[in-house]
Structures are given as C-alpha cells and as structure tokens.
Design a protein around this nucleic acid. Sequence first.
DNA 1: TCCTTACGCTACGACCCGTAGCGTAACTGT
DNA 2: ACAGTTACGCTACGGGTCGTAGCGTAAGGA
Lengths: 222, 222
Amino acid sequence: MPSRPPAEPTRSGRPRSAAADAAILEATRASLVDLGWSKLTMGDVAARAGVAKTTLYRRWAGKNELVVDAVAVLFDELELPDLGSLAADVEAVVLQFAALLERPETKTSLMAVVSESTRDEALRNRIRDSIVARQKRLVLRGRERARDRGELPAEPDAAMAARTADLVFDVIAGAVVHRALVSAEPVDTDWARRFTLLLLSGLAAAAAQPARTACQKPGGSV
Amino acid sequence: MPSRPPAEPTRSGRPRSAAADAAILEATRASLVDLGWSKLTMGDVAARAGVAKTTLYRRWAGKNELVVDAVAVLFDELELPDLGSLAADVEAVVLQFAALLERPETKTSLMAVVSESTRDEALRNRIRDSIVARQKRLVLRGRERARDRGELPAEPDAAMAARTADLVFDVIAGAVVHRALVSAEPVDTDWARRFTLLLLSGLAAAAAQPARTACQKPGGSV
DNA sequence: TCCTTACGCTACGACCCGTAGCGTAACTGT
DNA sequence: ACAGTTACGCTACGGGTCGTAGCGTAAGGA
C-alpha cells in the first residue's frame, strides 16, 4: 500500500488496481537491475509494467518514492535467527544483511535514496518507516533474546538502553554498508566473525567499565 | 590536478588554465549547496564558474567525476590530533568527520557518488584514491601512535594487522556515516564518547580473547 | 442508472545532455 | 618572427526525460 492518501475507509468510484501496484514495483526492481539507479526512468518502468506513465505519477511523486517502496519489501526477508548464542545470531544477521546489499537492486539504489533524503524530509521519513525501522527491530529483539539467555545484563535505565540500542544499530548497519558499498570488499564469514567478536567484546567490556579511558591489554589478534 | 591524462612532461600548445580548474571546483561546491546533487547540472556549474560548458567536458567525463574531485579536497582538512590518549584522538576524529558530513556539499553528494560507483569501476577507483584512502591513513596513524604509547599491543602478524585496520576503518567510518545520514541524528560529543568507548573496549577485549564465543559480564551502561 | 474515481493514450513545453564546428587565444619550438 | 599545437568561448543541434493536461473509456458504489 504505497499510495499517498493515508486512509480513506470506503471510497466511491473505481478502485486502484492492486495488480498494477505489484506489476509496477516488480518492474521497478527489474529496471534497477538492468539499468541501475541513474538510468532508470519512469517511462521505462511504466513500459515494463504494461501501464501508462501517468498511472505512476498518480501514485508516486517521483523516482525516489517509487524506488523506496520497490526496495522496502526486500527488507522483510531479514530475520533474526535463534542459533543459541548472541554471537551466532549477530553473525548470521550480518551475513543476511550483506547478502541483501549484494543484490543489484539494493546495491545501486539504497545509497542513492539516502542521498536524496538529505534534502527531502518526507522522503527521509518514508525511508525511516519502511526500511530503517525494520532493521532496528532486529537489534531490539536480539538484545531482548540475549538478556533472556543471560548473555547481557538487564539495563535498568530504559532511556540509556534505547540509546545503546541506537548506537549498536548504527555500528552494525553502518559497518556492513561501508564494507560492502564504500570499501567494496566482501562481507564474508571471516569478516562477520571478526566484526561480531569486536562488537560483543566491546559491549561486554564497556558495560563493565563505563569510564572514559582507553584500556590496554596484551594479547593476540582480533 | 584532476585532469585525466596521467602525466605528459612537456606539452606544446596552450596550457590548461589552473584558475579555471579552481573556479570550476569552487562553483561545483557552491552549486551542490544551492541545488543539491540531483538538481546540479553541468550547465549551471559552467555558468557559475564563468566557463564554457565544453570546457567542463574537456576535463571531466561527467557529473560524477566532477563532484568527486570537488568534494575530495574537503577531506584534506581531516587530521588526527594528538591529545594524549587513543580514546581522545578517536573521539576527536569522529567529531571532525561528522562535521565534514554535516556540510551540505558532502551531505548531498557523498552517498550519491558511492551509489553511482556500484556500476562504474573507474569511478569506484577514483573515490577510493581521492577520498577513502585519505581517511584510512588516519586509522593507520592512530594505531601506530597507540602502539608507541603502549595503549595497544604490537601486532606481530602484518597481514592480520592490516585486516584489523580495515575492520576498524569500516566500523568507524560506517557508524558515523550511518548515524549522520541514514539515522539522520546528530553525532555529538556524547555519542562520540559512547562509540569510542565501545570500539576501544572491543579492541582491547577481543585482542585478549580471540575465541569466538560471546562474553558475558555484569555491569552498568555503555 | 447516475456518480465518482481510475486508467490508457496522446501530445506538449521545458529542460538537460553530450557533441560538432568554428574562430580565436596562448604558449612552444625553431 | 613564424608555424605548430593545444585550449578556450560560443553557437547550434538531435536526442532524451520530465511532469502535466486533456480526453474518452472502464470499473466499481449509492
């Protein structure tokens, strides 16, 4: 339901074709794969979907909104598995997220819409609601599950817990995105394992020592 | 010296105007501020720079390359301060980087060119050489300095040290970018401090315990 | 049956792209 | 001083996309 009018219970007149919605979003993803973000045009999407160009503009304000909706459903695939330990769960979700970023549809368009959103608050909200919020739930569920397992201490201060969750979210999502799209190097099992070790070690150690000095320990490698 | 021909020692004929280069790059930044990435056009940049549009195309292949060069010089401002401790240094550089991302020129264009680079290897290399590499140096210098201070153990395995540096780089840059541009929330002193604590705690603890299990400790908050 | 809304289609002005062609300007070598 | 070479400004152009208007038709609801 990507259409703009928030909710109108029963409207008279001809209803919008749900099949057209599906065809358009599918055509958008296909066009992203073939042409990439910059060469994707509204006319091309309309032609692929077997729909008039005007129909697109009746539902979406432009390319940005259309692509966000087309890509957002892919994030529904993300799930937090229950593999018995927090480390295994984090590692798995990192690999899932990386696999999603490897898909040409997302690879070419995610950063583009984020870039556009820096000058468009409505678009920013749309991205937050339909993409970012879905990812953040995984972090909250992961923390919840780890607390039930006894792997992380219960956080008495709710506000502080929320800020920590935000921090962890930006670290995980940011690191994976940066590795995959900016550094353009593979997020493989080895990288995911090393990253997870770094993150969880940091969470545990920082929880034990909230001071603000650097710690020094001898030892091996990360 | 953004022009494509790598190096031709002594060329005959009229030399390219260095003043025009400077004016064009300056005009590009100004146009980014006023119009943003998507509405920036080559014609507008040429007009602002007081230069013919054809001159732009004689030096840059297109918008992508031009903007990368125009923004790259801003990254020269980044420096790793020497504040006495690794934590303070990291915190400061995080804030510097965040301030850079707050500038409208970078905010609107960095992710856009990264997005374009997913389908253009030459652009990817250009970004890596003129932007990413400059940031990565800060990580290497930071580690070097921390080792001299005794804050981090010397890493005997050079290959492993390089991989750790890459990991740390993606974590720092990725987290800051994600916080600033995707979550669109401020990277303030508090956030930088909490992030730094998490990172450095993780580095120290993970170095001491390279195993692959999650660690559980009691304690307060990050 | 009337009313309302969605759809397909065509056409349109506006804008931007990237290039070709030309005459002129600037610098190099002999 | 002169020819050779390259850069520059300017104009003009075909090709493409944008986003919208207008029209007739299709598909539901009262």
